[in-house]
């Protein structure tokens, strides 16, 4: 199954019956899959007139408490940014999938990770976060889709799957999650009062600054809780590692190959792979900073995650960058060469 299809099927199995989107390479298989499946199961597939329209339709359904998603690729996600801020400001759960391609501008159609900042630093106006999950296999494209819906519902906020063109296009065997629409209490949802309760208001406009300040503070209290409880990461050969590679998504897999080869040459290197990019695995990295002599951030952008690594370890140890951009993917040989040069004293 293709990674994109795995996301679509997993979303349906998580009880998502509403999909709104607009085509763009390399994520169109998600929309195509939804177009085929949704009418058969009584769900809604709608190709909107634009990305902006699609994300606002998502907001509408989210306000009713139903599970809903949209998907796009980099330039399309920029268009959705406004709506994502409104979702966050209205405290609404929804899933946004970004299957990244090279940028900026229209960029290219080959894989990239250059929307890291956009994904984890808000990406649109206002103080807010979204939960960002970075799958590294087709299996995780499916399982993290379920996780994203659950976390979004639990904390009443948008969640994002940050994948890339490789993860979207590649095929691997996948065990699909069991149908499981965990039920979350949503007393805030607009479901019609039936004359039995006071009406709910879903809104992101607060003209009194005291009130708006309060919503912001409350939201950040919730974010603290998420940072405490929902961090996901994988440690690989870290027990005795002197060099710590940090990488997510497709580059983590390339890095794994390089680490195996470096180990064969006697270099003590391991990897921390963030699965949640926000919340970021700060504690695990800080612990690694006490043991390791250097870090290498392997990513397909100009060093965006590297800054989060530096923040996490409070610049206690040097962080080197191993990157390709514009649709290029680093090869295991390139990563190995970087590991070797860092092992010999660094080449920053």
């Amino acid at each position: 199954m293709k990674g994109n299809e795995a996301i679509a099927e997993a979303a349906i199995r998580a009880g998502c019956m509403h999909y709104f989107g607009y085509p763009i390479t390399p994520q169109t298989e998600i929309a195509a899959y939804m177009a085929k499946r949704m009418p058969k199961i009584g769900g809604v597939f709608l190709q909107a007139e634009s990305e902006i329209a699609a994300v606002n339709m998502v907001l509408g359904v989210a306000a009713t408490g139903k599970r809903v998603m949209t998907s796009s690729s980099s330039p399309g996600v920029s268009l959705k940014s406004e709506g994502i801020s409104y979702l966050a400001g209205s405290d609404l759960p929804a899933l946004i999938v970004n299957v990244q391609r090279g940028g900026p501008g229209l960029g290219g159609i080959q894989p990239s990770q250059s929307d890291y900042f956009q994904a984890v630093k808000g990406g649109s106006h206002g103080d807010f976060k979204k939960i960002v999950l970075a799958p590294s296999s087709v299996q995780e494209m499916a399982s993290l889709t379920s996780t994203a819906f659950d976390l979004a519902d639990k904390y009443r906020m948008p969640a994002m799957i940050l994948a890339d063109g490789t993860m979207g296009q590649m095929m691997e065997p996948v065990e699909l999650p069991e149908p499981n629409a965990k039920s979350f209490d949503k007393p805030w949802a607009l479901t019609g009062t039936k004359g039995e309760r006071k009406h709910n208001i879903v809104n992101s406009l607060y003209l009194k600054p005291e009130e708006l300040e309060k919503t912001n503070f409350e939201r950040y209290e919730r974010y603290k809780e998420i940072e405490e409880n929902e961090v996901l990461y994988e440690e690989y050969l870290m027990e005795d590692a002197e060099i710590c590679v940090v990488s997510f998504g497709i580059t983590a897999r390339v890095a794994k190959n390089a680490i195996v080869e470096a180990r064969a040459k006697g270099i003590k290197v391991g990897m921390i792979r963030p699965i949640t990019l926000w919340p970021f695995p700060n504690k695990a990295l800080r612990a690694a900073a006490d043991k390791c002599k250097a870090f290498i951030s392997v990513e397909m952008n100009m060093g965006q995650m590297m800054e989060d690594v530096q923040l996490a370890i409070e610049c206690k140890k040097p962080v080197y960058l191993c990157n390709r951009v514009g649709g290029m993917i680093p090869s295991p040989e390139e990563v190995l060469a970087k590991i070797e040069s860092v092992n010999e004293g660094g080449d920053k």
């Binding site: 497709i250 390339v254 794994k256 190959n257 993917i329 040989e333």
Partner: peptide, 8 residues
Amino acid sequence: PIGSPIVS
């Protein structure tokens, strides 16, 4: 298990 799916 397969690491990098890219065959260079």
